[in-house]
């Protein structure tokens, strides 16, 4: 395989700001990583990723934002936290993946793994609608979004027969209150993104919460 060439001289202060922002949002010191690779050795999904978790950490340190946010890694990560558990430098790598995913979505980066993003959207739409997850509705809206119409039909039918998939969603009394949570979160995010665009500092209260 040909070695990839990354232009480090073009990174500049924006790269440093990116690294600092990831660290602040994830509440972990990204510069603690010394590239031992323990995270990547233990990661059950690293075989399918374009960058190993260790490499994502290095991209963040170097401020190579586009490479990190366009990677398949941030979407394929299943959040199993084997990396965080084993990191000898106590870097919360799984949380860094969360932060990068949220950032990629917020800033409109194209998703390398469209189906995974579509799944999350379908899941959350169901929760925002009725307050609880609704498997059948979620699967159907996922299928409409991805055109994966035939896949898993046999398991789906078995589960319908066994009563594991319900035909109707459970709608809680507080569905409107849950909807309100989604709206408020979106409003806060909108303000934070606008502040960031205008170069105003954004408070990341996540920082002290992690230990």
């Amino acid at each position: 395989m040909e070695m990839e060439v990354l232009n480090l001289t073009a990174v500049g202060p924006a790269g440093a700001a990116f690294a600092a922002q990831v660290g602040a949002e994830a509440g972990t010191d990204v510069f603690s990583c010394y590239q031992c690779g323990k995270c990547s050795a233990g990661c059950p999904i690293s075989y399918a990723m374009d960058y190993q978790p260790r490499q994502i950490m290095r991209l963040v340190q170097l401020g190579l934002k586009d490479e990190a946010l366009k990677s398949s890694t941030i979407w394929l990560c299943a959040s199993c936290a084997t990396c965080t558990t084993r990191c000898p430098r106590e870097v919360e790598i799984a949380t860094v993946m969360d932060t990068l995913r949220a950032m990629a979505r917020r800033e409109g980066y194209p998703y390398k793994e469209r189906n995974i993003a579509a799944f999350h959207r379908a899941f959350l739409n169901a929760v925002a609608g009725g307050g609880r997850a609704y498997e059948l509705g979620m699967i159907l809206s996922y299928k409409m979004a991805t055109f994966e119409l035939i896949k898993d039909i046999d398991l789906g039918l078995t589960w319908l027969r066994q009563g594991k998939l319900k035909f109707f969603p459970e709608r809680i009394h507080g569905a409107a209150a849950v909807r309100d949570i989604f709206d408020k979160v979106r409003e806060i995010e909108r303000k934070e993104v606008a502040a960031q665009r205008e170069g105003r500092p954004v408070a990341h209260e996540g920082t002290e919460g992690h230990s």
Partner: peptide
């Protein structure tokens, strides 16, 4: 009473505040 979904992986893969708010309710 009237519990809501915790948001599971999809919430924390999407928005940090959302992933805390759903269980917090």
């Amino acid at each position: 009473p009237d519990w809501n979904c915790c948001g599971a992986t999809s919430a924390h893969a999407t928005n940090h505040l959302l992933s805390l708010a759903l269980p917090a309710r």
